[in-house]
Design a protein around this nucleic acid. Structure first.
Lengths: 139, 139
DNA sequence: TCATAAATGCGACATTGTAGCAATAAAAGA
DNA sequence: TCTTTTATTGCTACAATGTCGCATTTATGA
């Protein structure tokens, strides 16, 4: 199916008006091969979209489950399309402590099994692998 | 051994001058049963310590390896004493999406094994379990 | 096309984190 | 103990990130 059509459908399904801003932000996530921060989104956008609007769009998408907050970077919230994340498994992210680059390790199949105390409910796992990327490794 | 003595030793071992601020911040981590944010540290401190100083102390401790940055909350950096975290295992943290409370699941023994692409080096794993705590569960 | 409800732009603001510099406190030696 | 030296702190200003309210604009359904 056409990506643009898919995006329009996704937005309508979730009760969103189909606006240029929302369509393009969502399109960015479909094009991206890694989690995106608000800052990166602003830079990648072709149309002028206000900072506040981007935040509102990201919040709305997150609440609707269209994207996930990956929390990869201590300062920036980083978002991505939801993968197969669930209560007991989620593909991890890699973050380079040299350059701050983050990547999605989607083909990861491992699982944690965590026994929480009574009364606690696990909804989702987030795993971050920290280390060095090839170009920062040599320095 | 006395905690205060241990703290003094730890600071000296790492080449730090033993100041009231550093000693008390480090003591907070020994007393705490969960990861702490800069904000929480400010609120828990008895003596008046400047915001900038707390940040500098946390940075210095992190660099020296006395504490770890746990990155649990999207907005706040959250720190804790280093556990048995390594390239392929780390005790996970639990974070309640209702009240934002975070906890350390120290007795966790599981492991991820992640195959990174050539040239990438994994130094540490951070795992976050998101869900609801008992008191937020009912709401 | 028009009416309406939602989304956006704009501005102001709160919070978090950083940097420079003068004042202060800790450590070492006399 | 007193002094000197050097690191640490407090203060101030600043940058970046995120939020909020309100007027304006836009998308949608009649």
């Amino acid at each position: 199916m056409d990506v643009l059509k898919k995006i329009t459908e996704l937005l309508k399904e979730n009760g969103f008006k189909v606006t240029k801003g929302r369509a393009e932000v969502l399109a960015l996530f479909f094009k991206a091969d890694r989690p995106l921060s608000q800052k990166e989104i602003m830079e990648m956008l072709r149309l002028d979209l206000d900072r506040a609007s981007v935040y509102r769009i990201l919040d709305a998408f997150t609440q609707a489950g269209l994207i996930h907050m990956a929390y990869v970077d201590g300062r920036h919230r980083v978002y991505e399309l939801p993968g197969k994340c669930g209560a007991h498994s989620c593909h991890p992210h890699f973050s380079c402590r040299g350059c701050g680059m983050t990547a999605c390790l989607e083909d990861f199949k491992g699982r944690y099994k965590v026994d929480l105390a009574d009364g606690f409910v696990a909804e989702r796992q987030k795993v971050l692998i920290e280390g060095l990327c090839p170009s920062c490794k040599g320095k």
